[in-house]
């Protein structure tokens, strides 16, 4: 699989790069827990972090004028273990300068077809709003706690009512995971685009519709495989999101994370218009080989690492 991926990008003249796994800064996302480590060599002592994704470093390269790049590397997320999660996992991440989100979605399909060795017969692109409405009848962009709660009670997920409360984003995560994602299983590949702006992460807000973000996710047989953005390049907006996420961390009692200043400087210097995506390679291998668990495709999973 790795050989085919490298061949695929070589053909398209996308440069392979390598960035540090051990970084001086990490992301502020309150949903991502990182591994921290400590560098000591007197008189220098400092905390270092294992990357949760190579996104910041790769964007620094893009800002420095690298052009389109890809990377295959390890990423680390603390506390994530399960059938579909391993705290250490492989990522394929790539950025295409001047690509629209739509062009990138097409390239993802092309890559999956290449890995399968056949053309894709069943691929489906659908907007988040449409697929959410179709599965639940609810509007994901407008939060109405009463109608969400009513839906949950009537559809056997009443735990959501007490868990999610008035947290719009958590409601969306809950309903999407339980009720929407299973409907994607009927397509071999499903691409869901136009995520609600409150779940924009590092994506640009759509210039024509500020309620949605230019973000998409790829699902193969209903399994989430990757997450793509039209990249946010506005340094001030990025810094604002870091601050908001840090506030959120504070509310949840999590440690406050130092903003990655080198990354923000790179954005100030100017990130070219580009689209990028990260794909979980272990999951991709799992689903392409019809395995049931990541443990089947990782030589030494977390319990035996």
């Amino acid at each position: 699989m790795l050989k085919s991926i490298r061949g695929f990008f070589e053909q398209k003249s996308v440069l392979e790069v390598e960035t540090p796994l051990l970084c001086a800064a990490t992301g502020t996302d309150p949903q991502l827990d990182f591994f921290s480590s400590f560098y000591h060599c007197a008189p220098e002592n400092k905390a270092m972090y294992l990357q949760t994704s190579p996104e910041f470093a790769m964007k620094r390269l893009l800002a420095a004028g690298s052009g389109s790049i890809f990377q295959i590397c390890k990423a680390f997320r603390n506390g994530e273990v399960g059938r579909l999660h391993n705290p250490e996992f492989s990522i394929l991440e790539w950025y295409r300068v001047d690509f629209t989100l739509d062009q990138l979605m097409d390239e993802v399909l092309e890559l999956i077809a290449e890995l399968l060795g056949t053309s894709l017969k069943d691929s489906h692109k659908v907007s988040y709003v449409d697929v959410f409405k179709e599965a639940t009848g609810l509007n994901p962009l407008v939060f109405c706690q009463t109608s969400y709660a009513e839906y949950a009670v009537n559809n056997n997920i009443k735990d959501a009512v007490s868990l999610c409360g008035n947290d719009h984003s958590m409601w969306l995560d809950f309903i999407f995971s339980y009720k929407v994602q299973p409907t994607l299983e009927r397509h071999f590949v499903a691409m869901v685009y136009g995520y609600p702006a409150i779940q924009s992460s590092l994506a640009r807000i759509n210039p024509d519709d500020s309620a949605v973000a230019d973000r998409f996710e790829v699902f193969i047989k209903g399994l989430e495989i990757g997450n793509g953005f039209f990249e946010l390049s506005d340094a001030n907006e990025q810094e604002k999101r870091f601050d908001q996420e840090n506030q959120c961390r504070q509310q949840k009692g999590l440690v406050i994370v130092q903003k990655d200043e080198k990354f923000l400087q790179a954005l100030h210097a100017g990130l070219p218009d580009c689209s990028g995506i990260a794909i979980g390679l272990d999951r991709l291998l799992m689903v392409l080989s019809n395995a049931q668990s990541l443990n089947d495709v990782i030589a030494f999973p977390f319990e035996r690492a």
């Binding site: 991502l32 506390g79 999660h85 958590m170 995560d173 779940q199 992460s201 996710e217 989430e224 997450n227």
Partner: peptide
């Protein structure tokens, strides 16, 4: 027990 975590979201 199944660990569920959507893309960039809350883990359940």
């Amino acid at each position: 027990n199944e660990f569920i975590k959507p893309g960039k979201g809350q883990a359940f």
